[in-house]
């Protein structure tokens, strides 16, 4: 696992929170929520493979 993924997730988190604040203060709560969801989807897309690998490792380790 590359350490860059951690920095990318952090950067996405910061950007999403900034956009969320900007849109909420402008009274556009729905767009703010959609932005948050989009950020969440993007990060999940990045880490889904690692989660899958984690479950495989746990299965192998405990011979499940």
């Amino acid at each position: 696992m590359d350490i860059n993924i951690v920095f990318r997730i952090a950067a996405v988190g910061i950007l999403v929170s900034v956009m969320n604040q900007l849109l909420t203060r402008a009274g556009r709560d729905e767009q703010a929520m959609l932005t948050t969801l989009a950020g969440l989807v993007v990060v999940l897309y990045w880490i889904i493979q690692y989660i899958s690998d984690l479950f495989s490792e746990v299965q192998t380790l405990f011979r499940l």
Binding site: V12, L15, V18, M19, L22, L23, A26, R28
Partner: peptide, 17 residues
């Protein structure tokens, strides 16, 4: 202010992706 700041943030987001 809203459009300019959001557009810059979206640009940064796309660059990051």
């Amino acid at each position: 202010k809203l459009y300019r700041s959001v557009s810059l943030t979206v640009g940064l987001f796309i660059v990051l992706l």
